[in-house]
Amino acid sequence: MNPETVIDAVSAVFMVTGALMSLGAAIGLLRFPDLMSRMHAATKPQVLGLFLLLAALGLQMRSWWVWPVLVVAWLFQLLTVPVSAHMVGRAGYRTKHLHPELLSSDELEAVVQQAAGQQAAKHGVDDDDEAGR
């Protein structure tokens, strides 16, 4: 076998797997019951899918100088995806998007209640000003 065929085959496998990752994310979005588990489906396959597709692109271009820019593009993805997932998850938790019956344990609940109790005690009868933060 000549190397050209091998490179083509590897990048073809990468492309198909990367596309399947997107499909996996969509299946997860449709089948998972609550926001939090859907977030898992939305973030993780995205990162791997982009990695595989960029690797296929790098293999197809067959020149070394595209690799740094592909690495930069992937690193940006790596840095931004957890942040946006965390922001969405935090907003989801704070606005009570959770279904408690789907959780086997929730160790944040007690802390939130305690903090709310402290804040209410501090403010007395006044309304708490959580929105002021």
Binding site: F32, P33, P45, L102, L103, S104, S105, D106, E107, V111
Partner: peptide
């Protein structure tokens, strides 16, 4: 991680149970 999510989405689907851990 990706394959685990894929597996859970296809096999477990709506019955998946999670937890929040400190």
């Amino acid at each position: 991680a990706s394959f685990q999510v894929l597996y859970l989405a296809v096999v477990r689907g709506p019955n998946v149970v999670s937890a929040i851990v400190a």
